[in-house]
Structure formats: structure tokens, C-alpha cells
Write a protein that binds this DNA or RNA. Structure first.
Lengths: 107, 107
DNA sequence: ACTATGGTTCGAGTATATTCGAACTAAGGA
DNA sequence: TCCTTAGTTCGAATATACTCGAACCATAGT
């Protein structure tokens, strides 16, 4: 509880909040990883960054409604809210994901 | 010149910058208006806000590459960079526009 | 009960954005 | 030439976000 309660319900998703959450390289990187796997723990990312910073970015993603987090033992498993997002904002997550993976492939 | 030179070339468009520019209600409102008309002057919006603030938001849209601005007499005409954006980030602007007009219709 | 793991929260410092008035500039019209 | 229009730029105030160490809190294992 606590962190997991800040997730907005589907009807309360705000487009601007979602776009803001996605407008950051680190968070986009997290979202890309989540797009490849159903559920991942925060610790599973090879993003070199103090855990309090990572936690901050996960919270932004969580409170904006991009991801959902559930407890599994001692870890927190994160999942993209694909269905909710594509119902409320069809194509947004999909196209951002496509564009961002296209960009990271280019480098 | 000056303001109009800050526009990034198509190849230099940054996804995060575009998403950031779109993650604000005022700017989204501007983008929605621009989507309905080919070109509009800044003064043409019924956004009640001091002109220096409006100018700021137009600059964010301009420097991120969402809009392009050209001079026409004493006014500046703004246009959405639809083609550039959909070539670089297919579907992003389109879906954001669709979602945002859907939201503003709801209120 | 102790310890380790995987995270969150707090707090402070720094950086970045937003707001807005005021001064400026360029172009058009009287 | 003077005035107006349409917008930019500057500067300062305020607000918001990011970064990160330190302290904290569950849960799992020993």
C-alpha cells in the first residue's frame, strides 16, 4: 500500500500527465523495457542511478497512470497499463513506444 | 528572424521535447486550434493570458518542433509541422490530437 | 531474533519552468 | 513622421522537478 494507491483510475487518467511522464529519457527507457516484458521489478533495470532517483521516476510513471505496480514478496512488479491507456488515449502509448524504440535503435 | 530560427530541422526533432511541449494544457489548446486551421496568428487565440506568457508557450512549441512560424506583415503565422512529425514519430501527434479533442469535448 | 533485499519516504540542494510586467522591435497605416 | 499592432526579449519572482544520501519499512531467509 502507499505507493500503489497513487495510481489513478482509468477514468481519471490525464493526457497531459501521461505525456509529461513520457517526456523524459530515463522514464521512456523504463517504459521501453516494460513493453518487452509483462512484469519487471524495479531492480531489474540496468539504469545506473541511485535507487531513490529511480524510485522517483517510477512514481511519476505510476501517478500519471502509465504503469501499475503490485507487490510480489519483497519486490514490486511493474506493468504497463496498455489497455487502460489505449482505451482512453488510443494510439498514444503505441506510437510513442514505436517512435522511441526506433530512435534508440538508430543510435 | 530570431524566434523563427530556433526551429529544429526534421532530423533533429526530439521525441522527449515534443512530448514535453504537448504535456501542457495551454499548449495543447494551441495545438488543437492549429489543427483546425492551416495557419493562425498568435493573437488569434481566445486564451486569456498576458502576451509574454503566450509567447513563452509558442516558443516551447516552436523550439520542440511542434509548430513552425513565418512572418506575414506584422503578424506571425503559426502552422503545425504535421508532415515532419508524422514522418519522424508516426501517429504521435495524430493520436494526441484525437485524445485531446475527445477530452475537451467531454467537459 | 537477526540480517539482507528491495524498495519507499524525507529533506535539502540544485536546476529548470512558468508567470508576468516592462521595455523593445519590426511592419503597416494615417 | 508618428502611432498602432503584433509579437519578442529581459529580468525577477515563484513554482515545480530532479538528484541523491540517509533513514525507514516490509518481507523472506537463516
Amino acid at each position: 500500500m502507499g505507493a500503489l494507491q497513487n495510481e489513478p483510475k482509468k477514468a481519471d487518467l490525464q493526457l497531459t500527465a501521461v505525456l509529461y511522464a513520457l517526456s523524459d529519457e530515463t522514464r521512456l527507457q523504463i517504459v521501453q523495457s516494460l513493453a518487452k516484458t509483462p512484469e519487471i521489478a524495479c531492480s531489474y533495470f540496468d539504469i545506473h542511478m541511485p535507487k531513490s532517483s529511480l524510485s522517483h521516476h517510477f512514481r511519476v510513471l505510476r501517478t500519471s497512470g502509465v504503469i501499475t505496480t503490485r507487490k510480489k514478496g519483497t519486490a514490486l512488479l511493474n506493468r504497463l497499463r496498455r489497455e487502460d491507456l489505449s482505451e482512453r488515449f488510443p494510439g498514444v502509448l503505441e506510437s510513442v513506444l514505436a517512435a522511441s524504440t526506433a530512435m534508440s535503435r538508430r543510435r
